[in-house]
Computed example of a mutant assay.
Amino acid sequence: MAGEGWTWQVAPPEGWLLVPTAATLPPDLLAAWEQEVAGLVRSSLFDDGPERESDGDPADRDPADRNPADRNPADEDPDGVLDAVRDGIAAESVANLRAFADGVIDGGALVVATFRVPDSAPVPVLATVGIEPLGDPGDDLMTALGATGGSPVAPPRIEHVDLPDGDGMRVTRLDLDPQNGGAWVSVCLGRRTEHADAVVDTVLQWRSQDLLQGPAMTELLDELLPAVSILRSAQ
Results as ranks from 00 to 15, higher is better:
Ala2Glu: 05
Glu4Asp: 05
Gly5Ile: 03
Thr7His: 00
Thr7Gly: 04
Val10Ala: 03
Pro12Ser: 09
Trp16Arg: 03
Val19Leu: 14
Thr21Arg: 15
Leu30Glu: 09
Ala32Val: 14
Glu34Val: 00
Ser44Val: 09
Phe46Asp: 06
Asp47Thr: 10
Arg52Val: 07
Ser54Asp: 00
Gly56Ala: 09
Asp60Cys: 01
Arg61Thr: 04
Pro68Ser: 07
Arg71Asn: 07
Asn72Met: 05
Pro73Tyr: 08
Asp75Trp: 13
Asp87Ala: 09
Ile89Gln: 04
Ala91Gln: 15
Ser93Leu: 09
Ala95Ile: 04
Asn96Ile: 11
Arg98Ser: 12
Asp106His: 04
Ala109Gln: 14
Leu110Val: 12
Val111Asn: 14
Phe115Thr: 09
Asp119Ser: 15
Asp119Tyr: 12
Thr128Gly: 02
Pro133Asp: 06
Leu134Tyr: 03
Asp136Gln: 02
Pro137Asp: 06
Gly138Lys: 01
Ala144Val: 11
Pro152Cys: 08
Val153Tyr: 00
Arg157Gly: 01
Val161Trp: 05
Val161Gln: 09
Val161Asn: 06
Leu163Ile: 13
Met169Leu: 08
Thr172Asn: 03
Leu174His: 01
Gln179Thr: 04
Gln179Cys: 01
Gln179His: 02
Ala183Leu: 14
Val185Gln: 08
Cys188Trp: 09
His195Pro: 02
Ala198Phe: 02
Gln205Phe: 06
Trp206Val: 02
Gln209Arg: 12
Gln209Val: 10
Leu212Ser: 07
Gln213Tyr: 09
Met217Thr: 03
Met217Ala: 05
Thr218Ile: 14
Glu219Val: 14
Leu221Trp: 03
Pro226Thr: 04
Pro226His: 05
Val228Asp: 03
Leu231Glu: 04
Leu231Pro: 00
Gln235His: 02
